[in-house]
Design a protein around this nucleic acid. Sequence first.
RNA 1: GGCCACUUAGCUCAGUUGGCUAGAGCAUUCGGUUUACAUCCGAAAGGUCGGAGGUUCAAGUCCUCCAGUGGCCACCA
Length: 702
Amino acid sequence: MDKKYRYKDVDKKIYEMWEKKKYFKANPNSKKRPFCIILPPPNANANLHLGHAMYVYEDIMIRFYKLRGFESFWLPGADHAGFETWYVFEKHLKKKGKSRFDYKREELFKMVWEFVMQNKNNMEEQLKRLGFSLDWERKKFTLDEDIVQIVYKTFKKLFDDNLVYRGKKLVNYCVKCGTSFSDLEVTYKDVKGKLWFILYKLENSDKGLVVATTRPETLFGDVAVAVHPDDKRYKKFIGKKVILPFINKKIPVIADEMVDMKFGTGVVKITPAHDSNDWLVGERHNLPFVQVIDFNGKLNEHAGEFSGLHIKKARPLIVQRLEDQKLLVKVKDYEHRVGHCYKCGSVIEPLPKEQWFIKIKPLAQKAKDAILKDEIEIYPHRFKKILLDWLDKFYDWNISRQIVWGMQIPAYFCKSQKKWFVSVNKPSKCLVCGKDDFVQDTDTFDTWFSSGQWPFATLQALGKEFFNFFYPTSVMETGYDILPWWVARMIMFGIYITGSVPFKNVYLHGLVRDSKGQKMSKSKGNVVNPMDVIDKYGADALRASLVFETAQGGDVVFSDNKVRSMRNFANKIWNIGRFIYLQHTLTERDSLDKDVVNGDKHIKDLEKESSKFKKRYMQLMEKYKFGQAFDELYEFVWHRVADYYIEQLKESLRSGNIEVLERLTNIYFELLKMLHPFMPFVTEAVWMNLNKSNKSILETTL
RNA sequence: GGCCACUUAGCUCAGUUGGCUAGAGCAUUCGGUUUACAUCCGAAAGGUCGGAGGUUCAAGUCCUCCAGUGGCCACCA
């Protein structure tokens, strides 16, 4: 055995050996108890980052339960990541001086497909370098035909059950990205803006009502002004009409309780087409809605002389003209929160658009019931409440996206009857009128609509025996940041389609931060490429550094220093093995009386302490306290076993006490098994060196 | 504004249903060693357990209040 562990020479060979011997290949007909994790499918549009390396927690569980005699199954996959990928792809197009408008839909789709396949292969190789014991023969991609079929079936069922509907509502629209989003994709930011006080004159009068607004450019879409019914200042104006500046349109003064008498002037302009609160007021008062901003962010024909102007340019002009006409009464600095596109950062426009919406409430209720009945355990426990809060806050979910990349929605419009129908397979004739005068919706699904079905979709796609044996899966392990996007939706869809929760446990890991506790981001320049770390210190060191000194679900403090000390630990493990190995090869021994050096006593103490420690380790592992289990393992292996016991036993070993050596070897094997989930390569390497049977550590049990 | 979590040694964390002088690793300082060891080993130092009050024979641990940190959500023209 070498003096040190040469990971660069052996890790790859070890992984290939594991794969060749099919240790990661799950058997759905096994007599063992199942243990299944579905890998959160990484986006197939970029290389892995440290966040992906956090899936090491899944590998720890998969390997641990495998050693415990379970039939472990870790299913790999990749996500087409609809809009995320689309965004990256459009940037690439832009670099080449092209845009999406230069291609036909089919061409675009094909181009993205090729782009994604390349990245997907790359990503899979990287997951292997991390040592992840994924069952590659069972990998799935969200755009695999069988997966798409299952997702389409879900949509059809939702449609038939009246849980999805086509509706024209205000949607979150990003005019730059050219698509609508769900409520979750909008991030609110504090914006320093202005509050403009504008005079709306009464009919045949120079006097009028002053409205306060942050968005003067929407005034063309005003259909009323509202005051509070109890507001004494304005009671007499209710029912009268005021005149919109520029276009001289008469709109009524109405009374509505949503108006806050204390805010601004107590008079609100009502623009149902561009504000969600106003939309509600419009519905209550049966007002028309007038869209004045189009999907390119420009004012349309309702804006009179300003039509065709982008709203950003129009606003100052409009304010100026109001001032000219002495209709601008006052301007006040005002800080408020404005929704922005989570991806490009543009201001999100609420625009009226016909889209597909899922009625969330009935689905969310069942998810809540399941969680309250503890059908799903969540680690750390504090996220249980957060998840329940989320389920309460979900409103109808807009799943239509105006992009090409993704699953085209299997909804068709009958032109003659003006009616929508849904069909899983492309229909040859209209299911409404029987003719062929129909078109498919050009929109695609929100990515989360398909990934929300991932646990049952993958297992169903693999076949009945997989679904029956492994569903519900054992653990869903993912970052806490996608709790509402993904976890909540998987629970809802899982219950809706299969009647059962999709997983029995949820383990949420934290964020990887740098040594100063800062989030890693490109702009801060503190991003670490996991592959570089592996090159430098080995995969085991990287893996261990993401677990060591980390509380359950806590953020990981990542530093070069920590990886280095984990590399040293790997070497320590190796060298204990080397020491034992050398003792076994020792041919000449002194003939010291073993009783003189207390070998028997020390080895007995060590055995006692080891079995006590193993119990402790098991408890921690079963309670999902992986960081702590590893911390204590580190301390025990290094500072108790190596520093203390082996030092005590040295004389006895040198004297030729074979029994002590055998007993020490057995204890070391136990330690290797406990270490293996965390540091699979070095433990396997040393195991193969020491174990004469030449069998993998994966063939043993813990 | 609402909700949640956290606050124990310089750093990262343990501390089980309240019970003997509060623990570990890393970092620090000192000493030793060339050993199985990309060095390693030993020792030391380091905490009024965020603050205040309460329950109790006994509180880092339970309760109340306060402060600070972090997170999530909402939001009003």
